[in-house]
Amino acid sequence: MEKFNILVCDDDKSIVDAIEIYLKQEGYHIIKAYNGFEALKALEEHEIHLILLDIMMPKLDGLNTTVKIRETLNIPIIILSAKSEDTDKILGLNFGADDYITKPFNPLELLARVKSQMRRYTALGSIAEKSNVIKIGELELDKDAKEVRVSGEAVKLTATEYGILQLLMENVGKVFSIDQIYEKVWNELSFAPENTVSVHIRRIREKIEINPKEPRYLKVVWGIGYKIEKI
């Protein structure tokens, strides 16, 4: 298997080293940079498949670096920042980043996200569009096989969980309340305040999301219901 090159750019050397250890264990080749200019220079010298980029760096910060990279390259960029405000995340993603991880991060989550981005980047159009397959981002729901796949890997779901996910994925962007979901999936009238639905939702999330606390797909609209976000 070809070794993928990952550029890790952060002004804190110890963080770069820690990330290097984790990613090396997974078989990636690491190129290190400590500011935006070094990152751009590394991009010229090496063939890079994925970039991990800090925002607050000396000389050239992460956001400007992202803009510079996006002028020429389409490789996945994951921003790695201590800035945890919603506005920071929106800004980062709008500037052209593919994912946003806040510090301090769980190393395993970082690895999962890197793998996810890598798969999306390398598995170019390998799956033909099927009418019975609903694809949202890395999440696929195959109605024929009654199977759900995340980044191509099948996920084990119960029948109820599958029903809920199918309902939400068939109506991407639409918000369903607990009662609506209960009526549609259980085919019963909701008569008592039960937290069954919310518990199921949480379990689905744990199975399909990299970080269930910061879900990409299955989102909670607090006080209103649940939905699957368009990606």
Binding site: S177, S198, I201
Partner: peptide, 30 residues
Amino acid sequence: MRVDYRQITLQAIGELEEKIEAAGLEMKVS
């Protein structure tokens, strides 16, 4: 926003179900 008090309570309990169970508590929503 227009928020359903009951719904958000159920959602919250659902989210925290694991912790609640671990503590051996039982939630009674009326």
